[in-house]
Design a protein around this nucleic acid. Structure first.
Length: 662
DNA sequence: GAGCACTGC
């Protein structure tokens, strides 16, 4: 885990000294008395590591029940708690993440991700194994934690003895409490449902500075601020919040250029990048103390806002923007664009300066601009493609999605679009019920619905083994190739695997080469500019998907080296089977090439789509195509993972969809 | 001829 180490400095304090220790009895009393407890406390307060232990000691696991705090860094937190309880990991204390279940029959405290807990609810709808469930960092409002809270509220009606603990930032605590009280007979008496318990943090004061006039170029301004601090302020490291990799690279270059003009006897600057795309080793540099006579300057994305904590930061520079995903239900196109941060985000960023001593925060915008920022970031559930979420809710037996008790309901257009898509994919029937077995199986597969459909249809096309590999590769989302400075070499390496019919066939070719010629070896990957970590992940994902299929009673006969154009019984070449199979799932993402080489969606002529330069279809001819990824970035909208199809297949595999739209 | 924030089953 990239961020795992980051948690440790904050956690390695004697348990008795953690702020939460003083609240032990009060917390246990509250949880005993009220079904829902909202726990307000900062990272480092010890809530994730200590509360489960208090509960276990107080006898909440007596009759064999398990406490389940869901946590991003499940592995490291579980390890820490097992150490404190002096037991072996996987015994009394365990964790469960995808591909890794370190629990046993004797496990009492189980750390797991919220996605996995939801998945457990498919098998055990009342989550009856658990006596207490703690939803950690709920204020981050991730899609899965929002859904989990809705599901837990429903479970509570059937299991009044269940205890729910929600950890949250101060601002949202009341929202969570009101949510759990809403709709109950005793609604007026919120206290009967739950209570808020606050654990004080030990933050130091941070002085906030604004610009007096808006700035034109925040990168230039950020760099200037770095040198102002460096030349006039006392020791202490600097953390700059930027939007992404390109911002960070530019800023590092600008800092390096200006550092040349520092006088020889002055303190020096050690500037480092921090974003999720870096390898674990590259990320570790930011946690090391700077050498003597150096000031550390970290240029980071939002990863440093909540996921990663760096000690020794005294100065924060906030550019005021963050890159956010958004989904347009009219076009079905996702965008990733720089958006002004929320007040909550700005506050969180500022707080990063006051962890070890009093600090300063420089906001690269005016106070007027700050006043106009939204209070909180729009929750994911209100800006995402909800098809996977709806499928999941249906599989949990929640049929009336519109009446489901969402913490904040998503816009109707998002629900409509998702329901329409699931209907055209055949996952839902005319009454919006999950179809059997297709819909149910689609919900169980850990794939987005269109891809799940392809996989579940693959037997009909006689290409199941190949489609499994393609599905696994597609989930890697463009992380297949190792980015390299020499674009030329990278291109030649790619060309070796290229298959005329498109990117999916090429991905299949890469996968099959990796497991046969490459022998799943890291060196082989390096030679071919492939990302070894990603390729290994593809193997794990493929295995998991195959196990799902086998559970459904779908036999997978492994056939290798079929990516070359092997004719199968029936006379249809494998590439055509696969292209037809892909069309049966991705018909809603079909486009036609224009004379200028750009594409238009079949049912939305307004959006200009460009083949992403990393795609084989970049500057190649293909009249009709389907694509598995589309993303708006900056001014342009790109499609990637593109495959040639025949126009007639669209009507053949999606008659209702194309009759409606033509 | 561009380059994707962060999680996750």
């Amino acid at each position: 885990m990239a961020d795992s180490e980051a948690f440790i400095p904050a956690l390695y304090k004697p348990a008795g000294l953690l702020p939460i220790a003083r609240h032990r009895d009060a917390l246990l009393y509250t949880i005993e008395k009220s079904p829902v407890t909202i726990l307000v406390g900062q990272t480092g307060s010890g809530k994730t590591t200590q509360l489960p232990q208090y509960l276990e000691q107080a006898g909440w696991c007596k009759d064999g029940k398990i406490i389940a705090p869901r946590r991003v860094a499940a592995t490291t937190v579980a390890k820490r708690v097992a150490d404190e309880m002096r037991c072996q990991l996987g015994q009394k204390v365990g964790y469960s993440i995808r591909f890794e279940d370190v629990t046993s029959a004797s496990t009492k405290i189980k750390f797991l991700t919220d996605g996995l807990l939801l998945r457990e609810a498919l098998v055990d709808p009342l989550l009856s194994k658990y006596s207490v469930i703690m939803v950690d960092e709920a204020h981050e409002r991730s899609l899965s934690s929002d859904v989990l809270l809705g599901v837990l509220k429903k479970i509570r009606k059937r299991r009044p003895e269940l205890r729910i603990v929600v950890s949250s930032a101060t601002l949202q605590a009341e929202t969570f409490l009101q949510f759990f009280a809403r709709g109950y007979a005793d609604e007026a008496d919120v206290n009967a449902v739950g209570s808020i318990v606050s654990i004080e943090g030990r933050a130091f004061p941070v002085n906030t500075h604004y610009l007096s006039d808006p700035c034109e170029d925040y990168l230039e301004r950020a760099v200037r601020t770095v040198f102002d601090i460096h030349l006039t302020e006392p020791v202490g490291d600097i953390l700059i919040f930027l939007t992404g990799r390109s911002d960070i690279d530019t800023a590092l270059q600008m800092i390096a250029d200006r550092a040349l003009s520092l006088s020889a006897d002055a303190e020096k600057i050690l500037a480092l990048p921090l974003y999720a795309g870096l390898t674990t080793e590259e990320q570790m540099y930011v946690f090391e103390a700077a050498p003597e006579k150096y000031r550390k300057v970290i240029c980071a994305t939002n990863i440093a806002e909540a996921s990663v904590t760096i000690d020794g930061i005294v100065y924060v520079i906030d550019c005021g923007f963050v890159k956010l995903r958004a989904y347009n239900p009219d076009t079905g196109i996702e965008t990733l664009s720089a958006t002004p941060v929320s007040k909550a985000s700005a506050t969180q960023r500022t707080g990063r300066a006051g962890r070890t001593k009093a600090g300063k925060c420089y906001r690269l915008y005016t106070e007027t601009a700050y006043d106009m920022l939204p209070a909180a970031t729009v929750p994911e559930i209100q800006r995402s493609n909800l098809a996977p979420t709806i499928l999941q809710l249906k599989a949990l037996g929640i049929d009336n999605i519109v009446r489901f008790d969402f913490l904040t309901p998503p816009p109707a257009e998002l629900l409509t679009r998702a329901l329409e898509l699931l209907y055209t994919l055949g996952a839902l029937d005319d009454y919006a019920k999950l179809t059997q077995p297709l819909g149910n199986r689609m919900a169980e597969l850990a794939l987005e619905p269109m891809l799940a459909k392809c996989l579940l249809c693959a037997t009909d096309f006689g290409c199941l083994s190949e489609m499994l590999s393609i599905a696994a590769m597609t989930t890697l989302q463009g992380n297949v190739w190792f980015t390299h400075d020499s674009k030329k070499q990278e291109e030649t390496a790619k060309r070796k695997f290229a298959v005329e019919e498109g990117d999916h066939l090429t991905l299949l070719n890469v996968y099959e080469s990796f497991v046969t010629k490459g022998k799943k070896d890291a060196k082989w990957c390096q030679q071919h500019y492939l990302n070894f970590k990603s390729m290994s992940r593809a193997v794990s994902i493929r295995n998991q998907l195959r196990r799902y299929l086998e559970r459904f009673g779908i036999a997978v006969s492994e056939t290798l080296n079929t990516s070359q154009d092997v004719l199968k019984a029936g006379g249809m070449p494998m590439h055509e089977r696969l292209r037809r199979c892909l069309t049966s799932g991705y018909f809603a993402q079909a486009a036609r090439m224009q004379a200028d080489g750009t594409f238009r969606l079949v049912n939305d002529a307004t959006t200009v789509l460009h083949a992403h330069p990393s795609s084989l279809m970049f500057n190649r001819k293909a009249e009709w195509v389907i694509f598995t990824e589309v993303m708006g970035m900056g001014e342009k909208t790109f499609v990637r993972d593109v495959t040639k199809i025949e126009r007639g297949w669209l009507v053949e595999y999606a008659p209702s969809y194309y009759r409606l739209n033509s």
